[in-house]
């Protein structure tokens, strides 16, 4: 039987440093939820399929259920709690999900918001096919995905471009 030894880790989460001893088998997802109290990161399948636990690890979307906290020692993590702007103003992605019915029960939404935020950073003007590929690692059981695709399109500014084709006189 292996002696359970705690290992000291320091992880910066949403800009704040969290330092503690963890057993090696503690996943990053459980570290975030239980040690940092950041329960916005959800655990669905816990074995790398559903994508609900997606966070940014040094800027890249990864499943926090498939990373041990010890592997994230020294890393920068961004969770859904780190998405909103000052004064808890919704991020453009979060606002687009609300506006376009990109969620129903909301369980998968943190993972989607994190995935979409990273995806749009790397693909500011995506095609629908690229959006679908970009979100292939996140499952949603409520929406049928159409509202989510619409939200990503809107957040990417394509909605605004369509708006420009039908100008309204009200704009200054």
């Amino acid at each position: 039987m292996t002696v359970v030894r705690e290992i000291d880790v320091e992880v910066r989460v949403n800009g704040a440093a969290y330092r503690c001893g963890v057993p090696p088998r503690l996943t990053l997802a459980d570290f975030l939820r239980e040690r940092c109290g950041l329960t916005g990161t959800h655990l669905g399948c816990e074995h790398g399929v559903c994508g609900a636990c997606t966070v940014l690890l040094d800027g890249e979307a990864v499943r926090s259920c498939l990373v041990f906290a010890v592997q994230a020692d020294g890393a920068e993590v961004t969770t859904v709690e780190g998405m909103a702007g000052p004064g808890d103003e919704l991020s453009p992605v979060q606002a687009a999900f609300r506006d376009h019915h990109g969620l129903q029960c909301g369980f998968c939404t943190p993972g989607f918001v994190v995935s979409v935020t990273a995806f749009l950073r790397d693909h500011p003007d995506p095609t629908d096919e690229e959006i679908r590929q970009g979100l292939s690692g996140n499952l949603c059981r409520c929406t049928g995905y159409q509202g989510i695709i619409a939200a990503v399109r809107a957040a990417a500014g394509q909605h605004a471009r369509r708006g420009r084709e039908e100008p309204t006189a009200a704009h200054p």
Partner: peptide
């Protein structure tokens, strides 16, 4: 391979 999250790790 897999999906974006898999390919990042």
């Amino acid at each position: 391979v897999g999906d974006p999250q898999v390919r990042h790790r």
